[in-house]
Design a protein around this nucleic acid. Structure first.
Lengths: 192, 192
DNA sequence: TGTACGATTGGCCATATGGACAACCCGCAA
DNA sequence: TTGCGGGTTGTCCATATGGCCAATCGTACA
């Protein structure tokens, strides 16, 4: 019984890795099996179909990948701190993390697959909520301009950070420092 | 000679449409040929490979899709007008436009294909430049807070708009109105 | 009229893929 | 010992795909 679960998990891990490395559509059941070091027939036994396997692998991998930013949003002392940290991570080459490729692949697939969209959308929603709490705290402290809806600011920041990832993937030479300066300046409300 | 070019173009158009409808990896040379109403052997004659055909189709389709927002950025009277128009388009269901699906597919593929990344990245760069000009004009008029780098604001706005598309695709129920209000408020610098 | 050449057409092939399955292994309870 | 059942393994198969190619067409030009 325990062995069965281990094989199943190995297949899930291999599938998630391959999605990031080769892209969703290039993943084959045979490649997954080879990566997991199990015979290819094992796939049919443990999963109803290739789609099922990829979906399940992508969902858990995405949850794992989003855990770090979520924790950061929940623990950051301020929005500025969160943004600075994230921008620094981008600049330091965080994009080379396979998790980024995996997220992009999953997002694209989720745009076509309702069963995938639901859980991913829920994770995103949770992230925005944590961010909105942080924004609200900052606004009360006066560290962030008031008079704008906190949930709107949170949605905008989340979209900005993900959009920046997209742009950086398409144009690795893009300098994010001016954007970082602009966003931090606007949020602080310092200029007049 | 003219006929040859027409067949070639029909294949390109069919390929672009199929990328948007079924997703990049689900496109087959036979489906393209059927869509273009030419025999499937025509693909081999007019293009060196399926990859070549898809790349060329995606590049021209992307350029076509980006022409509208680019013109909008160049002609808009102000950043606020541009943003309001774009947000309204999102809310009115602009996401159902096949061009959006096509752009997402192309972006994902470009992340893995240097030959695709280069032209797409150049188009993005051009868009950011037009946006930066608009921002600069607004700052000089005082319609937009100064003291922040215009190119940074432009990069942030571009990322924000694309990131919002991504989030809307993953979560169609997301209400963009608070985000729109927040962004417009922050850029105007009205609150204090 | 003939002919050269680009364009067209449909058949063909090697290959890869997802999935099904029968045989087998092995620990455990009767 | 004998069954039993979950797990494993390798093989087999129908299908689809990308690409190649020989035969054919049609037309502009000599």
């Amino acid at each position: 019984m325990e062995q069965g679960a281990a094989t199943r998990q190995a297949l899930l891990d291999a599938a998630a890795a391959l999605i990031a490395e080769t892209g969703w559509c290039a993943v084959t059941t045979r490649a997954i099996a080879a990566r997991a070091e199990v015979p290819h027939g094992a796939v049919s036994y443990h999963f109803a179909s290739k789609d099922d396997l990829l979906r399940e692998a992508a969902i858990s991998a995405t949850r794992r990948a989003l855990a770090a930013p979520l924790a950061l949003a929940a623990q950051a002392g301020s929005v500025a701190e969160l943004l600075s940290g994230t921008f620094a991570w981008y600049a330091a080459g965080g994009l080379t993390d396979p998790a980024v490729a995996q997220l992009l692949e999953t997002a694209r697939e989720a745009a076509r697959d309702q069963a995938l969209r639901a859980p991913i959308g829920a994770d995103l929603h949770e992230y925005r909520k944590a961010l909105a709490d942080l924004v609200r705290r900052d606004q009360e402290r006066g560290a962030l301009v008031g008079g704008v809806p906190a949930d709107g600011v949170a949605a905008a920041i989340a979209a900005l950070l993900d959009g920046l990832i997209l742009h950086l993937v398409l144009d690795p030479d893009l300098d994010t420092r001016p954007a970082a300066a602009a966003v931090l300046g606007l949020l602080a409300g310092e200029p007049r």
